[in-house]
């Protein structure tokens, strides 16, 4: 038995070896390099490979980096909450009220992916701009007297753009979790006296929790590190930690500090993710 298992395991390893090699070279190696870099020092073009914690001291101690880190976390948390809150009703509707052509609906949800993300960000600029679609429309309809300025080049614009971009990633895992709920459980809850609202909070929501946690993590983790969106629609108030990391690697020519900032934000977001995962596990059931 053990022998056969080993042979099967060996076969499995061979099957994934190509992908595994690719992942190792393209993901694990760069990651190790970044971590190593964060303990070095750079002086213009020379790299001093003496191990030091100075970069981390600077990354955690300098107010500007703290501000940017907090802002990144704040923005991505707002984006995540907004996205998941908006995605849930869509996923719910799709799972419980669409009976025919579910595949078509899912297909339509992925339509935004057909355009490049950059184009979509620019489109939001066109929509949210001073003379943009939204302002012109509201002016034309007489709802406002002057163009709204709080919708572009600030935090709001970043939230709106990111929430839109990540919506499908949040809808799909929630949809899958809702689809997995045995409908007879809902009938059983009704049969035992629950009103639809009570049943939602006692059965549907706890059982959808794995999907909600997945959606939260899928949106939260990448948005903390996003730098295109804040760069294009965020103005100066909307800059995030990744913009600073990019600057360190580029203009500032301080790759070790950039690496230390990257590793730091990775650790922070890692801890937050674990926290969310544990809370989700406590709130919802492990669905089997």
């Amino acid at each position: 038995m053990a022998l056969r298992f080993d042979r099967e395991a060996g076969q499995g390893l061979r099957l994934i070896s190509l992908t595994l090699a690719y992942v190792l070279v393209m993901l694990a190696a760069p990651l190790l390099m970044v971590i190593t870099f964060s303990f070095w020092t750079q002086d213009y073009l020379t790299i001093d490979t003496t191990l030091t914690l100075n970069n981390y001291r600077e990354a955690w101690g300098t107010p500007i980096y703290q501000v940017l880190m907090w802002r990144s976390l704040k923005i991505s948390l707002i984006v995540t909450v907004v996205t998941v809150l908006l995605a849930f009703p869509i996923a719910y509707y799709l799972s419980f009220h669409v009976t025919r052509r579910k595949a078509l609906w899912l297909f339509l949800i992925t339509v935004p992916f057909w355009t490049s993300y950059l184009l979509r960000v620019f489109l939001w600029k066109v929509i949210l701009g001073y003379n943009g679609v939204l302002n012109s429309a509201l002016l034309g309809l007489g709802f406002i007297d002057a163009p709204l300025t709080f919708i572009l080049y600030n935090l709001n614009a970043v939230v709106i753009t990111l929430a839109h971009a990540w919506a499908p990633f949040a809808i799909l895992p929630i949809f899958v979790a809702l689809e997995k709920i045995d409908r007879s459980l809902l009938e059983a809850a009704t049969d035992l006296g629950d009103s639809p609202l009570r049943r939602f909070f006692r059965i549907t929501l706890p059982l959808a929790m794995p999907g909600i946690v997945a959606a939260t993590l899928i949106v939260l983790i990448p948005t903390v590190g996003d730098f295109i969106t804040p760069r294009l629609v965020g103005g100066t108030d909307g800059l995030m930690i990744s913009n600073m990391i990019q600057i360190q690697f580029g203009k500032a020519n301080n790759a070790p500090l950039g690496a230390a900032l990257a590793v730091s934000s990775m650790v922070v977001i890692g801890l937050i993710s674990v926290g969310i995962f544990l809370v989700g596990k406590k709130l919802g059931g492990r669905v089997r």
Binding site: D182, S184, L185, E187, A188, A189, D191, I203, P206, L207, G284, G285, R286, V287, R288
Partner: peptide
């Protein structure tokens, strides 16, 4: 009701 699938709440 006793359901065919029993509908025991898994959580």
């Amino acid at each position: 009701m006793v359901f065919q699938s029993y509908a025991i709440f898994p959580h």
